[in-house]
Deep mutational scan, measured.
Amino acid sequence: MPSETPQAEVGPTGCPHRSGPHSAKGSLEKGSPEDKEAKEPLWIRPDAPSRCTWQLGRPASESPHHHTAPAKSPKILPDILKKIGDTPMVRINKIGKKFGLKCELLAKCEFFNAGGSVKDRISLRMIEDAERDGTLKPGDTIIEPTSGNTGIGLALAAAVRGYRCIIVMPEKMSSEKVDVLRALGAEIVRTPTNARFDSPESHVGVAWRLKNEIPNSHILDQYRNASNPLAHYDTTADEILQQCDGKLDMLVASVGTGGTITGIARKLKEKCPGCRIIGVDPEGSILAEPEELNQTEQTTYEVEGIGYDFIPTVLDRTVVDKWFKSNDEEAFTFARMLIAQEGLLCGGSAGSTVAVAVKAAQELQEGQRCVVILPDSVRNYMTKFLSDRWMLQKGFLKEEDLTEKKPWWWHLRVQELGLSAPLTVLPTITCGHTIEILREKGFDQAPVVDEAGVILGMVTLGNMLSSLLAGKVQPSDQVGKVIYKQFKQIRLTDTLGRLSHILEMDHFALVV
């Protein structure tokens, strides 16, 4: 994948999101292997301009796509893939009243899908469409860049269908997702969380590099694949309309690839034109409109599966009536509230959605109805927002919020430890010299600072030695090549209790 991002070429006709291997024109390309080798690009942008032909009021008969309808489940399912879809609609009884809503608040519980998330729908649909058009064949390999849930859905379907599955996901995604993927037989590649989507090191860039190296491999490409919004247009939206008897006044959905909100909203605009569509985008993402909503100094966020630093091709923002931004604290607070007060075992993005819903639905009156999409299960986040310690460490809970008995030293300040200034190293000294210094002084790690004293990161003896043994660096290389740029900081005025929580999850903390 090139470091400079080429513009994806656009073909003359058809839909841009065809499933299957992508040609340089962004659509299915038939021909000899030699032709494909000559024409197939190194990668295709996940934010390529959409060429979708959908228009409100256009006859369904003019759609270029294969459409399906929700099917009634048999008493005995032939395999677990038949437990994807037909998820329950559940009334939220307490939270709406707590925040003064007059309307009825309903939750579409997508964590009841077989793999635990709304992404099971698009995973199965992308595979079925690729099999139907002859792209996927027995023994082929599926590769997908994902925040985890699409990966789980694909790995689940691949396990049943017999495909090899490789999932490329950023490091910030939970260990629970990784464990589930491994249990399903998927191979996992992790990428830096802070890598831009168009960087060769991003999950998108690495996935395309693997595709170019592995024979008979395919990126189904949830960011561009029409099967993504079509899955929701054909099934999720129809289920909502049936469950609500066609009567709903507002739908609120958090947005990642945009397939969920695009597919549902398009069908609702056709069948229930008075329904307002509300999009939820986390602070630090750029999906919301108008652009002024996205202006923030924050560039990272903890909530998973929603928000991006690019506009995915499948996201149709014209069908969203209003956007709201959400933050991590309210997302996790509301997710825990949904679990504790409503018994809905949902993930953090569901918290984002409901946090926005109780604001947006203030305009609705008694007798009206708001539906929220709860995308995934708490299963993926047992060591994250479900953990009091994690919430404390991230600053989303305060010590006084917890009532468990603490040891005698818990409320003492870090400054009472009488710490001395640490050994520091410059980023320009060599790895070999740094190892000598650390061994001589008896230290395992040291902060790396520039000549102005600005902290650049941390270097550890173990990481340097393993990097040297693996051949990633040489003793003569500058130590700046092996620094940890993500590390926890703590102030002298913070409590030892807070430091204790940090050290339970990290090997060190830097006192500043």
Rank of each mutant, 00 (worst) to 15 (best):
F111C: 01
K39H: 03
L136F: 08
K36C: 12
P74F: 07
E176H: 05
V168W: 01
S32P: 14
I261W: 04
A226Y: 08
S63Y: 05
Y233L: 04
A226F: 01
A157M: 09
S73F: 11
E37P: 15
F112C: 01
S73L: 10
S202P: 08
P64I: 15
G263C: 01
I152C: 01
H22M: 01
D120G: 14
E40R: 05
L251W: 01
I92Q: 01
K30R: 13
E9D: 14
P64M: 10
D234P: 01
A38P: 07
P21L: 10
S19L: 06
A253S: 07
L42H: 08
V90N: 05
V204G: 06
L210F: 07
Y223D: 01
R18K: 11
C165I: 04
P215C: 01
A130I: 01
A114P: 03
I92C: 07
D79L: 06
P21C: 15
A265W: 06
E270M: 05
K267V: 09
R266V: 10
E4Y: 12
C165M: 08
Y223F: 07
W43M: 10
I143R: 03
C165Y: 05
K108L: 03
I122G: 01
V206M: 11
E62P: 15
P33Y: 01
N225T: 10
G256R: 01
T13L: 07
E131W: 01
S3W: 01
P145A: 07
R276A: 14
A107C: 13
E144L: 04
T5N: 15
K271A: 09
G57E: 13
S23F: 11
G185A: 08
I80S: 11
Y223H: 01
V118G: 07
E110G: 01
H17P: 10
G14D: 10
P200A: 08
R132V: 01
D129L: 07
R161V: 08
T13S: 01
A237R: 01
I76N: 15
K30C: 05
E213A: 15
G148I: 01
G274M: 15
L248N: 01
P88Y: 06
I219T: 06
I219P: 01
A8W: 04
P273W: 11
P12G: 07
L77D: 01
G256E: 04
R121C: 01
N216S: 12
H17K: 03
N93C: 14
S199I: 05
E37F: 10
V178G: 09
H203V: 03
R164S: 13
R196N: 10
R58M: 08
I166A: 01
H65T: 01
H66I: 15
K172A: 01
A158I: 05
K172G: 01
N228L: 01
A195D: 01
E40L: 13
M173F: 03
H67R: 01
S3N: 13
G263K: 03
A69F: 13
R276E: 06
L81V: 07
G148M: 15
L154T: 01
L268T: 12
R58I: 08
I92V: 11
R182C: 10
A265F: 01
E9W: 04
S61I: 06
A157R: 04
R125I: 01
S227N: 13
P33K: 01
G31F: 12
H67S: 11
E270C: 06
F112W: 03
D140N: 01
A130E: 01
Y223N: 01
F99S: 06
R125P: 13
P74M: 13
R209A: 08
S254A: 04
A38G: 09
I264N: 12
Q7D: 07
E201F: 11
C103R: 04
K25W: 03
D79A: 04
G259H: 01
K247A: 10
G116C: 11
L248E: 01
P21S: 13
L251C: 08
A107S: 06
L268K: 06
V118H: 14
G263R: 01
P21F: 04
H66C: 11
V160I: 05
I261H: 05
S254F: 03
P46I: 10
I76M: 15
A226S: 06
